[in-house]
């Protein structure tokens, strides 16, 4: 049995879905950030599989850009989370409810 490109694309779709569901269901901000990472990495896997299918380096190079952006986002994200939750007890999204309307 050969493992074709579509398997990887399907795996990517499953990972992406886990990320989306996790982000919508979990209430811990750190885990929500991890779910975003999962979604970005699912896209990376999809990029690489399609690059393989097209025999094209472009798709693999795109992964590097996405990785860099993901890293930058986590750096800023964690800094924001730390600076805010230093004043509070837990990193739960439900606590963030001073604004409504």
């Amino acid at each position: 049995m050969t493992v074709s490109v579509s398997w990887y694309v399907i795996l990517g779709a499953i990972l992406f879905t886990i990320g989306v569901v996790g982000l919508l269901v979990r209430r811990n901000v750190l885990i929500m950030l991890m779910c975003i990472e999962l979604m970005l990495n699912a896209s990376n896997l999809t990029f690489v599989s399609f690059a393989r299918q097209h025999q094209d380096v472009g798709g693999q190079a795109d992964v590097f850009f996405v990785l860099v952006v993901a890293a930058a986002e986590v750096v800023v994200g964690l800094a924001i989370i730390v600076s805010i939750f230093r004043k509070r007890l837990g990193a739960t999204a439900d606590d963030l409810s001073s604004m409504k309307g």
């Binding site: 982000l23 950030l33 975003i36 999809t46 805010i84 963030l96």
Partner: peptide
């Protein structure tokens, strides 16, 4: 609070965009 809401939803939309 605004920063975290913007960060999480912005990151979410970016991930959807890349996918």
């Amino acid at each position: 609070e605004a920063a975290i809401k913007y960060l999480i939803l912005g990151g979410f939309s970016s991930a959807i965009f890349v996918y």
